[in-house]
Design a protein around this nucleic acid. Structure first.
Lengths: 249, 249
DNA sequence: CGAACTGTTGAGAGGCTTCAAGCCTAGTGG
DNA sequence: CCACTAGGCTTGAAGCCTCTCAACAGTTCG
């Protein structure tokens, strides 16, 4: 729970490479050199906290490896997981941009390497490279879109439907290699913290989904057996790209 | 429900003035001239739809007067109101920025005047005026922040707590003149569409809040009698600015 | 090998939605 | 101007869903 100080290693060169980040694709040679000079990289062990709600951030973080969860603490300290992030994502930018204390906490789920980019560097990039800002704007808009989707699912769906929805959206974000298997092991309570339900409810739903052969589990990693079945449980009303083309009646 | 074609008038000069918009504060004389040449302004009567989910927007809208609600349609056509907007706000920018169809619908609640700014104008501004983009970025981040707050309240709070929270946040956005009274008349079902509950539940809660002298109502406009009481019902756990400074243990 | 944590299961209670019926209000047409 | 109708509002009752609590099993870790 506290800062775990043991086993801290320093990241090796390759782990701090930012050239794969979409965000930085538009940077000039010069800008990249500056970026690399300004960044500070660090390895964060499992369970360590990158930043806490209330902290004033002086820059943002680029995740070059590992998995991180962002959550907000609510009533009685109950956590609400907002999203999971991984390689290629950036976190903490909201707080930096609006110059307000962080409104969520970032905790490491799987050992991670993060590069911190100071506010000043961000500011210089923003002033000189409009494509960089545009990308940032797009990112914020995308996050907004997903927050709204999450909201409506939470507001209108029953637990079972909403949980199926959550599983589907996890797959979209965490089944990178399209193996129909989540790379992150998630505990029952973590799943409960995403969906906003009691963990007992999650347990019962997982049991039910397994019986219905919708999913399987090995070592807390969820394997998807029947995506269409899950969508049916989720009671999708969507207008998603794929289904509009094909499933239209 | 359909496009209401009667009583459409053209906006008068003063109604199309954008100089009060924070967003445009950083524009040069030249940029403002261009902006005013490029904009298209229109009066929208009550109940008319500015844009529908699924529409591809070719720009964004600046609200110079009136009140508009943004909602998303969910399961069985059930509406989820995402937010209310008014003078000085802009809408439709997300869809324009990410170049995706609109993911929500904008409907007029009180006759409104909107100025449409085409994408090209936005793009030019973004490329030449970093302060303009910065403001836009800030706006998106603010909206994200509020969506997350809404989410956690919805996820963790009981109906009564959450409804009190919604009332408080409505006051923050719609009690502009600090009269402790909302300027917008809201129907029971609209309130239900914000909180994500059955309208019967809203009715019962309003009754209860009135009995407890927390609020009053005249002509569907809510008057706040006891803000502290409402906060207590909302069971606030916040870290708001005020309380962090003073109540810190 | 115990301690502490996570997962599992069952029972009970309570909150909310749903349904159904009646009321009230505003707007319409005779 | 009044009666009529439609739509919003109100209320009560029934029932389901989900949370809570409590007890226990399983696992991990020192």
């Amino acid at each position: 729970m506290k800062n775990i100080k043991k086993n801290i290693r320093t990241p090796i060169e390759e782990e701090t490479d930012l050239s794969d980040f979409e965000l930085f694709k538009s940077l000039t040679e010069q800008e990249l050199i500056h970026l690399n000079l300004d960044k500070t990289c660090q390895v964060y062990p499992r369970r360590s906290i990158i930043y806490h709600e209330g902290h004033r951030l002086k820059g943002f973080y680029c995740i070059t490896s590992g998995i991180i969860k962002l959550f907000k603490t609510g009533k009685d300290g109950k956590k609400q997981i907002l999203r999971f992030t991984q390689k290629g994502d950036i976190i903490g930018y909201r707080s930096m941009i609006v110059r307000e204390p962080a409104c969520n906490t970032a905790e490491v789920m799987e050992e991670a390497v993060l590069c911190h980019i100071p506010y000043q560097t961000f500011l210089t990039l923003m002033q000189n490279n409009w494509q960089f800002v545009q990308y940032m704007l797009r990112m914020a808009c995308k996050e907004l879109f997903e927050a709204n989707n999450h909201l409506i699912s939470m507001a209108q769906k029953k637990n079972r439907e909403h949980f199926a929805e959550v599983l589907l959206s996890l797959k979209q974000n965490f089944d990178i290699h399209h193996t129909d298997m989540l790379q992150v092991p998630l505990s029952r309570s973590e799943l409960a913290e995403v969906t906003g339900t009691a963990s007992e409810s999650i347990i019962r739903m997982i049991k039910e989904f397994k019986q219905k052969k919708l999913i399987e589990e090995s070592k807390h990693k969820i394997k998807y057996l029947n995506i269409e079945g899950l969508k049916k449980v989720a009671n999708r009303m969507d207008i998603d790209r794929a289904s509009t083309e094909s499933d239209k009646i």
